[in-house]
């Protein structure tokens, strides 16, 4: 059964514009549509009327690239848990619903246009140390380092992060610690990451701070919003790694 909805969408020309909500009515919404397909439909209607389309980031539309964002009715990626916006379907909504759509809001995530934000701060955090320094061709045989299944599963759980930024969007302090902790956890659990372990956490946290993200106050909103269900215990690990790193460096020459 198709239905009608009202959309309140944040429109902002550019980083320098102040932005405002604009209201749109949309009819004939099919419950089988994905949320983004619903926005596609709106955009076609806008474009046919010669009006500017709503800009939003998206690419794979299967929940893995991390491009889509959208703060839907007060929740990053909308009402379904463990789901990205692109995998959210309109059957979750009903006739007459009013849906607020906002961009991720955080100081480091500047609005580029409408619902598109600049998440390059995440790239800079990874560039600060979210890697293992191994040049191409320097590797040993893959089975030379056995890694127990429990450990490798734990590393995988953290590595599943898609870098979408929902954690920042959800946190009342716009903290990026879940994102940072996921990478730190992955590389600190795996033996390959050990040589740079403490240097890495120190550098990544430092860049995270410079970018202007807020601080964790242990309220778990990030975990609840994460489409890949990254656990907040990673933040605890991040703290531990950071403390050990600083204590070690204080006592080393």
């Amino acid at each position: 059964m198709n239905f009608s909805i009202t959309l309140k969408i944040w429109r902002q020309k550019s980083e320098f514009d102040t932005g405002r909500f604009v209201s749109y009515n949309l009819d004939h919404v099919s419950p089988d549509m994905s949320f983004l397909e619903m926005l596609d439909t709106l955009n076609v209607q806008l474009e046919e009327k010669g009006k500017e389309t709503v800009a939003f980031d998206h690419d794979c539309r299967e929940g893995i690239c991390g491009a889509c964002s959208l703060y839907i009715n007060g929740e990053p990626h909308g009402p379904d848990r463990g789901t990205t916006t692109c995998q959210l379907h309109m059957r979750r909504f009903k006739e007459g619903d009013v849906i607020y759509i906002e961009p991720w809001r955080a100081k480091p995530f500047k609005v580029v246009k409408d619902l598109v934000v600049d998440r390059s701060s995440f790239d800079r955090i990874i560039q600060a140390g979210g890697y293992i320094s191994v040049n191409t061709g320097n590797a040993r045989d893959a089975n030379a380092i056995p890694i127990g299944k429990t450990k490798s599963d734990l590393a995988f759980d953290a590595a599943a992060c898609i870098g979408c930024g929902a954690c920042v969007a959800a946190c009342k302090n716009a903290s990026a610690m879940l994102f940072v902790s996921a990478k730190v956890t992955q590389l600190s659990i795996l033996p390959q990451g050990h040589p740079e372990r403490y240097d890495r956490v120190s550098k990544m946290v430092s860049v995270m701070d410079q970018e202007g993200f807020g601080n964790c106050t242990n309220e778990g909103e990030c975990e609840a919003a994460c489409p890949k269900e990254i656990k907040k215990e990673n933040i605890s690990r991040l703290n531990r790694e950071f403390i050990v790193s600083k204590v070690k460096s204080a006592f080393s020459s």
């Binding site: 590797a139 890694i147 299944k149 490798s152 992955q186």
Partner: peptide, 16 residues
């Protein structure tokens, strides 16, 4: 080999 060295968490069995 290269990917494992980079920390790609490939599936492993119980023996590691």
């Amino acid at each position: 080999d290269q990917c494992v060295a980079q920390g790609v968490p490939f599936a492993r069995d119980y023996g590691g």
